[in-house]
Design a protein around this nucleic acid. Structure first.
Length: 500
RNA sequence: GCCGCUAUCGUCUAGAGGCCCAGGACGUGGCGUUCUCAACGCUGAAACCCGGGUUCGAAUCCCGGUAGCGGCACCA
């Protein structure tokens, strides 16, 4: 609360954080973390989490991307309190734009793109800080408007862009909640930056830095928590605020999420979109916990956090200043942890869509399915792996006959081993086909065959059942499979071996 | 090139001048359990970017290097 006092004259205003994704691509985990931190900061302080879609990039914004953003945020459980689309607020900005022009803080620039490009390249070539200090800032408003009208009557289009008149040699500072005092000199900001571009005749489309300042005011935003890549936009926004006489919200710039090579995480590093993680079978609680810990921690050696727990503990000032590498191994471990902690019923419910996707159905035998899932629960890292790990419960597995060989066994040893298992198992009644009976009778068999190495009996059996090098133990598997399916799989293995 | 941000095990991090020859977690090595795998328990290796200050004392404060990253649009 104390943050607010300085900017709202000591009045206890409500905490209102805004998260402003743009629907120009799939929703990434970086965005998800920014959303999470905004959400947490708001909720910790009993405030509001405001979602503002920045969809005025006409060329790139797409409705399906907006859908992806909203679905991702909902999936993570970060429910927003208010929702806005920049594109639906276009008429709100004109007054502020006119005020800046009236006050001589903004002006019309008639330079062509080609001119601007050339100017930029020349400045870079001269090793100077590229900056467009526009000559048109001196053009009297009357002349500018005349020129504007002429263009409209000639071509039906505006031919100008509205720029902010950057002040000369002014220090612009703000107190970043994470980094402390950050200052920029106005001379280094790239010159007279754009506020709005020509749209239809008589109309200007507000651009990001301008629109966001107006919206922050209108939406009574108290805190702006965003990625570090925005840090150099902040002085521009502050300049607009000052000249419009608007209050300055608090700013916090989050460190970036990095790829293993320490570059910015991007598509070429594999899955980065939140929905990709859902499809692989990560739980939302895993992602929340993981993302929260990426750049933040509670200080103690605590590492498991639910959303609720985070709302109690989250502290923005403890956010890390440096970028954090996205470590998929830790994510997998965490997901395994959360899978193990789920109740069996809940896990069955969540895993079902994945099995359906893989075309694996146990008919309506939910009990059969439950047993299989219980068996895999301690081993599973991602829900999406369930299918490939348990196909053998649904059909006779296919595999190379060599797999049936334990250590220095020969094919004929494997055949003999499987025959012993088969004969022993056939003697067990269907109803007694449980772990304990299976284990005691098979181990007795191993003893009789003077096999100290239990692997000689159990390895061929287990691989015959599963077709897998690694799997749960054979007794548990046979108990679930039942007598008929167990014998079927042994027969299939023997057939395979005999064919050699 | 210019501006800005950052710097503790491989990775995420604890650390707010003495509690630190640096703690936890993932990963990794070993052991136990074990037909295999997982889970679990025990255990090992593994880091303060470099150089100067300040101080009785620095991972911690200051300065300078270096490196990494971000930004420099009529995108957001």
């Amino acid at each position: 609360m104390s943050f607010l006092k300085s900017f709202f004259g000591g009045k206890q205003e409500e905490i209102r954080t805004r998260f402003a994704p743009s629907p120009t691509g799939l929703f990434h985990i970086g965005g998800a973390r920014t959303a999470l931190f905004n959400f947490l900061f708001a909720k910790v302080n009993g405030g509001k989490f405001i979602l503002r879609i920045e969809d005025t990039d006409l060329e790139r914004s797409r409705p399906e991307y907006e859908k992806d953003i909203l679905e991702s945020i909902k999936w993570l459980g970060l429910n927003w309190d208010e929702f806005y689309r920049q594109s639906e607020r276009l008429n709100l900005y004109n007054g502020y734009l006119n005020k800046l022009i009236d006050d001589g803080k903004a002006f019309y620039c008639f330079h062509s793109k080609e001119f601007l490009d050339k100017e930029y390249k020349e400045q870079v070539a001269a090793k100077k800080n590229p900056a467009h200090i526009c000559e048109f800032r001196k053009l009297p408003r009357k002349d500018a408007e005349r020129r504007l009208n002429k263009a409209v009557s000639n071509s039906g289009q505006e031919n100008a862009i509205i720029r902010f008149k950057i002040p000369f040699d002014e220090e612009i500072c703000f107190d970043d909640l994470i980094r402390g005092k950050v200052c920029f000199n106005s001379n280094t900001l790239g010159g007279d930056f754009s506020l709005a571009k020509a749209a239809s005749a008589g109309n200007f489309l507000p651009l990001y830095n301008f629109a966001v300042v107006v919206d922050d005011y209108l939406m009574k935003i108290s805190h702006v928590i965003r990625g570090e890549e925005h840090i150099s936009n902040t002085p521009k926004q502050i300049l607009i605020q000052k000249n419009l006489d608007l209050p300055m919200p608090e700013y916090a710039h989050l460190p970036l999420i990095l790829a293993p090579d320490r570059s910015k995480l991007s598509k070429r590093h594999g899955a980065t979109s939140v929905m990709d993680y859902r499809e692989m079978g990560y739980l939302p609680e895993t992602l929340i916990n993981f993302l929260a810990l990426l750049g933040w921690n509670a200080g103690a050696n605590e590492e498991f956090f639910s959303l609720k727990g985070l709302i109690k503990k989250f502290d923005l000032t403890k956010v890390q200043k440096s970028g954090a590498v996205f470590n998929i191994e830790k994510l997998d471990w965490l997901n395994g942890h959360y899978i193990r902690n789920l109740s069996l019923d809940e896990l069955v419910k969540r895993i079902n869509p994945f099995l359906e996707r893989d075309g694996l159905r146990a008919g309506d035998d939910i009990e059969y399915l439950k047993k299989i899932i219980a068996l895999e629960q301690p081993r599973l890292k991602k829900l999406g792996e369930m299918g490939e790990r348990t196909v053998y419960f649904f059909k006779i597995p296919s595999y190379k006959p060599e797999l049936l060989i334990w250590r220095d066994m020969l094919f004929k040893d494997a055949i003999a081993s499987l025959k012993i298992s088969r004969e022993s198992l056939l003697k067990i009644n269907e109803l007694d086909f449980n772990r304990e009976n299976l284990e005691s009778s098979l181990l007795k068999e191993a003893e009789r065959a003077k096999n100290k190495d239990k692997g000689r009996l159990l390895w061929p059996l287990r691989t015959a059942l599963t077709g897998l090098e690694a799997s749960p133990g054979p007794f548990e598997i046979m108990e679930i499979l039942g007598k008929k399916r167990t014998i079927e799989r042994i027969e299939a293995a023997l057939k395979k071996l005999n064919a050699i």
